[in-house]
Design a protein around this nucleic acid. Structure first.
Length: 262
DNA sequence: GATGACCTGTGA
DNA sequence: TCACAGGTCATC
């Protein structure tokens, strides 16, 4: 569930509440959760005594700079992760993930010298902590996606347009729900080969992505879309009342309207 | 580019 | 008891 909107909320929370506080200790109980070469010991050594200086984001990946030429702390929310600072959270309240404060779900955390804390709580354990992440493994951020860039990504690909939009190396930040919402808004069939989209389709899709991110961002998250009521078996299209089509496209469960999406 | 595995809470 | 949710990575 955490897609770009939830990651942005988490980034804003870290920026507002967790910067410039000395890290007294690091809670890294789960070696499996440390990815791409990071280890609990390594992370502990790298962060203890430093402060967080800036919170950035690329797609769904949180990037936190640290003081004194320290490493960049990379945090990924996976599918059920949430950031909590001093016990207060930001991001996806609970759609698939429980909101209980189960200590075992604190996969990673910082205790500050002032007594406060930052935690990454992730019941399903699919998030990640890494050091100095390779930011270029991700494409340009979806929140600043230009129409030209979208066209450059969509035009050459024979894959379903949904698969292209969700490919993080092409565009970073769009997940299953936001992609379905944007295609539903644009009236484009998720399974349509990307290269069959003409300039008008691309322009419309670009507008739909922007309106999706702006509107759902204001409402509070990826699960607040107009398309959501149609994401239930047996549901009808919220726009025109036609029975929704449920398929797997690009490896993910996909709901679309067979009447207005072509 | 498509598929399955990873992991685990939830709900039927 | 089991299908399903879903981001990402390894493998085909």
């Amino acid at each position: 569930m955490p897609e770009i909107l939830e990651a942005e909320q988490a980034r804003a929370l870290v920026a507002a509440a967790a910067l410039d506080r000395e890290i007294a200790s690091v809670h890294a109980p789960d070696a499996w959760f440390c990815k791409r070469g990071a280890t609990p010991t390594g992370v502990r050594r790298a962060l203890t005594g430093r402060t967080l200086t800036e919170a950035r984001r690329r797609g769904k990946l949180l990037l936190v700079d640290t003081s004194a030429d320290g490493p960049v702390l990379g945090l990924h929310l996976g599918m059920s992760g949430r950031i909590l600072v001093d016990g207060d959270g930001a991001g996806d309240p609970l759609l698939y993930a429980s909101n209980r404060d189960e200590p075992a779900w604190r996969r990673f955390g910082l205790r500050f010298a002032d007594g406060g804390t930052l935690y990454l709580r992730d019941p399903r354990r699919l998030g990640a902590v890494e050091l100095d992440p390779d930011e270029d493994r991700l494409g340009p951020d979806a929140l600043t996606l230009t129409r030209a860039r979208l066209a450059a990504v969509v035009t050459p690909s024979a894959a379903p347009v949904k698969a292209v939009l969700m490919d993080q190396s092409r565009i970073a930040g769009l997940g299953n729900l936001l992609t379905d919402e944007a295609l539903w808004r644009a009236g484009i069939d998720p399974a349509r080969p990307a290269r069959t989209l003409g300039p008008d389709d691309v322009a419309g899709l670009h507008r739909a992505i922007r309106s999706t991110l702006r509107t759902l961002g204001r409402r509070g998250g990826s699960h607040t879309g107009d398309h959501m009521p149609g994401r239930v078996p047996g549901a009808v299209c919220p726009r025109d009342g036609a029975p929704m089509l449920r398929r797997t496209v690009g490896g993910r469960t996909t709901y679309s309207c067979p009447v207005h999406q072509h």
